[in-house]
């Protein structure tokens, strides 16, 4: 291990620079290529309206995927985001329909999501339950609680100010897109420019050396699940506003799309490497594929096959990269 890492830089320096540029630009290139193909296939693809729709459709998965990036960077996984999203959506809608105002409603949703994230974090960081198992448990618990909360019924008749979060516009741009952009910007900056951000990478890259260098590994692990829960809560609020009611069965299997976006975006499931920018492209790629195949009238069966293939290839590239190192 040690000998290899010393020897490697000498022999592979020029290649690694090439590889680095492929890492950085590979996905954007694929993305642009796909857009070009789509633009030639459908005259409506490159319209302003269609792009606004793609971005709005991507916003929910995008918000979830940003939180998921933090979790996966620490070598974790959060399978419970879809359920947390539904739970938070209902909490938030309940507060909204009680007439407490927009700020209270949104806070309630995000708080509910964060609290379930706290439970996830506690299970993983303090009880040492493997993330897959802990959040699988939460997937079921949170979904059940969502049904208990309002006896399985949706919450409708949401106030207009609340609905604006989903269907409103600021200027020509939909509110969900703006929320998504702000979330991505904040969490990109935190990850890139703060000490905490470096800790997240360090914990996932090599837990032992992170620990020996004095990083509170448990605290960091704990925190990423709170981030993921918080953002799932926010996504739940936006989704309920977008569908004009909080539905207890909303968000089923959303965790899979969020994980897919992160993985396609080049974040390694074994932790330590990846970025929010990659995740954004991953989420957009999924959005464009879904939109494109809808525009072209391709059956949803093929849509699923296409998405699956892209996920597998994205991970395959990751595996190759590691082997070369």
């Amino acid at each position: 291990m040690n000998a290899k890492t010393i020897a490697a830089p000498i022999t592979t320096a020029p290649r690694s620079r090439l590889r680095l540029s492929l890492d950085r630009f590979g996905l954007p290139l694929v993305f642009i290529l796909l857009c070009v193909v789509m633009a030639f296939s459908s005259e409506y693809f490159m319209t302003w309206r269609n792009w606004m729709d793609i971005l709005r459709q991507t916003s929910i998965n995008g918000i979830l995927a940003v939180g998921m990036t933090y979790v996966i960077l620490t070598k974790g996984i959060d399978l419970s985001v879809g359920s947390i999203l539904a739970f938070a959506g209902l909490c938030s809608a309940m507060v909204a329909t009680q007439g407490y105002g927009l700020l209270a409603a949104v806070s309630a949703g995000m708080f509910a999501g964060a609290m379930l994230g706290v439970v996830n974090g506690f299970m993983v960081a303090n009880l040492s339950i493997p993330p897959f198992v802990a959040t699988l448990g939460m997937l079921s618990i949170a979904r059940g609680m969502t049904f208990i909360l309002n006896d399985g019924s949706p919450i409708t008749d949401l106030p207009d100010a609340y609905l604006a979060l989903g269907i409103g516009k600021i200027g020509p741009i939909g509110v969900p897109i703006i929320i998504f952009a702000v979330v991505a910007l904040i969490f990109w900056m935190v990850l890139r420019y703060t000490t905490y951000g470096r800790y997240v990478y360090a914990v996932g890259g090599n837990e032992k050396s992170a620990r020996t260098s004095g990083i509170g590994v448990r605290k960091v692990m704990f925190s990423v699940y709170v981030v993921s829960g918080l953002l799932a809560g926010l996504a739940g609020v936006v989704l309920s506003a977008r569908t004009t009611s909080a539905l207890p069965q909303a968000g089923v299997s959303y965790e899979l799309d969020a994980i897919a976006a992160v993985v396609i975006g080049g974040t390694s499931l074994s932790g330590g490497t990846g970025s929010i920018v990659g995740t954004l492209f991953g989420a957009l790629l999924i959005g464009v594929i879904n939109n494109g195949l809808n525009l072209l009238g391709v059956s949803s069966y093929y849509q699923q096959v296409a998405k699956g293939l892209i996920i597998v290839f994205a991970v395959l590239i990751d595996v190759w990269r590691k082997k070369k190192r």
Partner: peptide
């Protein structure tokens, strides 16, 4: 509902 929303938006664009 959410899936139908997305699908209809895309159709309206197409």
């Amino acid at each position: 509902r959410a899936q139908a929303l997305t699908l209809t938006e895309d159709w309206l664009n197409a």
